[in-house]
Write a protein that binds this DNA or RNA. Sequence first.
DNA 1: TTAACTTACTAAATCGGTTTAGTTTATTTT
DNA 2: AAAATAAACTAAACCGATTTAGTAAGTTAA
Lengths: 343, 343
Amino acid sequence: MKKLYLKDVARELNVSKTAVSLVLNGKGDENKISYDTQQKIINFAKKHNYIPNQLARGLSRGKSETIGLIIPNISDTFYSKVAGVIERKAKEKGYTVLFSSSYEDPKTEGELILSMLNRQVDGLIIASTQQNKKEIEFLKKEKFPFVLFDRYYPENETDYVIVDNFYGTKKVTEHLLNLGRKKVGFITLKPGLEPIAQRLMGYKEALKAHNLTSKETYVKEIGREEYFSEVEKAIIDLTAREQAVDAIVFSTHYLASQGLRVLKKLNLKVPDDVAIVSFDELSAFDIVEPPVTSVVQPVNEIGYSVIEILLNKIGSTVKTEFQTRVLKTKLEIRSSCGSFLST
Amino acid sequence: MKKLYLKDVARELNVSKTAVSLVLNGKGDENKISYDTQQKIINFAKKHNYIPNQLARGLSRGKSETIGLIIPNISDTFYSKVAGVIERKAKEKGYTVLFSSSYEDPKTEGELILSMLNRQVDGLIIASTQQNKKEIEFLKKEKFPFVLFDRYYPENETDYVIVDNFYGTKKVTEHLLNLGRKKVGFITLKPGLEPIAQRLMGYKEALKAHNLTSKETYVKEIGREEYFSEVEKAIIDLTAREQAVDAIVFSTHYLASQGLRVLKKLNLKVPDDVAIVSFDELSAFDIVEPPVTSVVQPVNEIGYSVIEILLNKIGSTVKTEFQTRVLKTKLEIRSSCGSFLST
DNA sequence: TTAACTTACTAAATCGGTTTAGTTTATTTT
DNA sequence: AAAATAAACTAAACCGATTTAGTAAGTTAA
């Protein structure tokens, strides 16, 4: 069972490579290949399981039927879920996906972008570190199809899909305030990413709307590398002080998970001593103790939108408007905030 | 900033394409290209950011520097974690990974294997549905480099990396028995996958070693699609009966999560009414209530082993022995089994 | 001083497809 | 019956690299 090439099929059937190629690509009719010849070719190809070499195909057609996916980390549940839906949708349309994690490193991300380009991907999907403006500008200038998600470049016009981070934290912070919490802390990542900035602003906005000034000391910014220990320090600082907080908003699911661990360790009761809330969620958040109220991101919709926009871009040569979508989050109320405090 | 091709570099420098190609592939010395010419080429390429087209490169070299990863579901934490380490290690060696989920469908998996082959991947990593013996045999016959993990074909000699599923459940079941539990239920998937079969056998073996016969009615086999409701039915059946179980072993992390949900809903106390244990774990298992004792799989080691074996295969032309690795699991004891029962 | 090596390159074939620009034969149209 | 049109193909160029098989000029050896 030797590997079968186009020329073998052609030779066996006494037709030209051209005929075989045209027919197998569904261009037989428009090129007036007779019905009989077409059947002959199709049957032979099917019977002998001929599959074209995609490298050769891609090379000569200038496209690879592949899309590149660059995300911070495939092991993070949020990204792995989005990757799952992107992959499924892409496959439906005949695309395969090449993925790579940047691990939040701009240099790695930049290299990945170039590497994917030279692998001739037909389009790129990037959840960027937001530190590669140059590469993004390059892609735009080359009119290369790409869509950003989760993180985008506010100062550069591009296609992107994000969620309403601002409104998400605003809503959940208000939820806490409406339940009677007065001193709400915010544990988040060090600045640099747009969604993180938006989440912080949403939190502040909620406080302002309730005529509370957001004390800087209630906001704790954590470095990603050492987040385990830093969350612990932050919580100790927020709770073991004169004006201890009675609620904490965590800006990511992993900060919230770690927060819960630390609170248990410190023997602080949730929600009695301190209520907590998480932006983004973990599938186990309904069975942790207590179940964590969270702002859930519409993972499926994110994936669908991204693929839809990208494939539209790839399909059309005419320059279209930039497509941007800001999707709604959903507030999933569980018991980590308790019910209304009488105080 | 037009795209730069090999021939452009050659023309600009007044040398042949051959020279450029040789030099940029580090074969300048062995082909006696003078030092000056080499420097000239290297500098120009670097300065103008020349990157070879990988499709063309792959086509002419007959390899693509790409490896294919086929798993049941990229959104499952276990697979996304393994995928993460595989990708990281692969990148270190200059490979990119093309991934696709089979969603446990043998037909999809078969198509994916062929699709990856014709995309000229240099090797394949598969966590198989175990229903594609034909394709696996085909790969072997073609001497195509591939490594199975998580699931393998016991009747076909291949390279593979698995964990000791049998010993894992045996150990954890014994753990329950040693704590004084007498009636241990087992909630698992419908048969068909080797690891699942091994886990069941480990469970039975532990009972036998304690002179308990494993009652068939204590074993519940769940269909994957409707597992949410089926786990509920299974638990009701195991607990609301004459001889109710006092412990349940779940054979996967998602069965265990759902089990915990159901037990809460039924108001059964864990571990007082029933102890539980999970094979494979979720990162939040330490903060759920109660924290779940689980058999943890060495995710990193799995990924490392798989890549190591695969790259060895790819690198060597000589036929080597099949490499098989059975990695140890680790028992992570938390409070979902309680402590010793006095009864 | 000429044959035999080296050195430093290059032309052209090749990888396996797609596609453009024809070609040949049969059929209509005038 | 000649010109025009259509039907059913095919030869060869091309995609952008790698690689084989040379070649020309300069050195060394006999």
